Simulated assay, not measured.
Amino acid sequence: MIRAAALVLLAVFILLPLAQAFMLSLTATLPKEGVAEGSMGLMNYAAVLASADLRAAMANSAVYVILNVILSIGLGLPAAYALARCSFVGDRHFMLLMLVFRLTPPVVLSLPIFILFSKLGLVNSPVGIALVHCLFNLPVAIWIMESFIRAVPRELDETAFLDGHSGLSFFFRHLIPEIAPGIGVAAFFCFIFSWVEVVFARILTVTAGKPITMAINAMFSFQTDIGMVMAMTCLSLMPGLAMIWLVRNHLARGFTLRA
């Protein structure tokens, strides 16, 4: 009984701010033409979708997040396989060094990354944000997938190669199905970090290519339309919820296997 009450209180504590944000997103917090202040409806969502800048911000976020996940998983999987199957002096120290790099505050590297990307023409581009996010997500993806690959018996590799499979055939027909939960966990963390990251999104999008986080920040002014801000915020939660729904089975199996 006490445990159930504690879970209910925890659920209320977590969901109450979300419920309040959703209610505000349906409320006209500023008077508009034909809409009285305090009225309820979908007018804020309609205003968000009617704004070209906000639609562009959603598209930019989708582009760089998807590209970041593809790069992190695509580059991390071969590296994780090599680290799991090959032993060399300092291999564990190398893994630790990657995690230490991931713990480096992004603001420390913001200036050199901005200078480098400005020379390469990657400022104000979703591709630039995707590349710098991949720089920070790649160590996490490698670390997660390496532990899952290490749990797969080496006999699977040997049997596949004896059966005449090439390296690509082995990866796609044998290894990836075996470690699908680990790939799901890695993709989830890469997606979440890239979707909510603010530092590089602010630094690398000075005039164009702004993502959702910067679009929401720009909506605050002397007279902020809180209802419209909350509508944009609720829309920004949808891709994350969709991602959790798509990889929910892999996430559950992945965390269970890691435990």
Rank of each mutant, 00 (worst) to 15 (best):
R173E: 03
A50Y: 04
T159Y: 09
D91F: 12
P78C: 14
F117P: 12
N44R: 02
A208H: 07
L237D: 01
L26K: 06
R150G: 03
P106S: 14
A5R: 10
V199G: 00
A47K: 08
A36H: 04
P153R: 02
L135W: 04
P105F: 15
A46E: 15
P177Q: 03
A201V: 08
T29L: 11
A57L: 11
N124A: 12
S221P: 00
T159G: 12
T213I: 07
A79E: 13
M238S: 12
V48T: 06
L109C: 13
F161D: 04
L24Y: 10
F222I: 05
T159L: 09
W143P: 01
P112K: 03
F117C: 09
V229Q: 01
F191W: 08
E155L: 04
D225P: 07
V108Q: 04
P139C: 01
L116V: 13
E158S: 09
G90P: 02
F172S: 05
M230I: 05
P139R: 01
Q20S: 08
L237M: 15
L30A: 14
L241V: 14
I226C: 05
F170D: 03
M214S: 08
A11R: 06
H250C: 07
A56I: 13
I115C: 05
L237G: 15
Y81G: 05
A46F: 14
I149R: 12
L16H: 01
F94G: 10
F255K: 11
E33K: 02
H174N: 07
N68H: 10
S25N: 10
L131D: 08
M230A: 14
F200I: 08
R102G: 00
F101D: 00
R173H: 12
S61V: 05
I70A: 15
A218N: 13
S61L: 09
L15I: 09
R253G: 02
A4K: 13
S125K: 02
F161T: 07
I183N: 02
M95E: 07
G128H: 03
G254L: 11
I244F: 13
A5I: 14
F188Q: 00
Q20L: 12
I115F: 14
H165E: 10
R173D: 07
D157M: 05
G128F: 07
S72L: 06
G34K: 04
A218P: 01
L97W: 10
M1P: 11
A19L: 15
A56C: 13
C134P: 04
A6F: 12
M98D: 00
P177Y: 06
Q223I: 11
V107S: 02
V206N: 03
Q223S: 13
S25G: 15
S51I: 07
V185F: 05
H174R: 08
M214F: 11
A57V: 13
L168S: 08
R102P: 01
L16W: 03
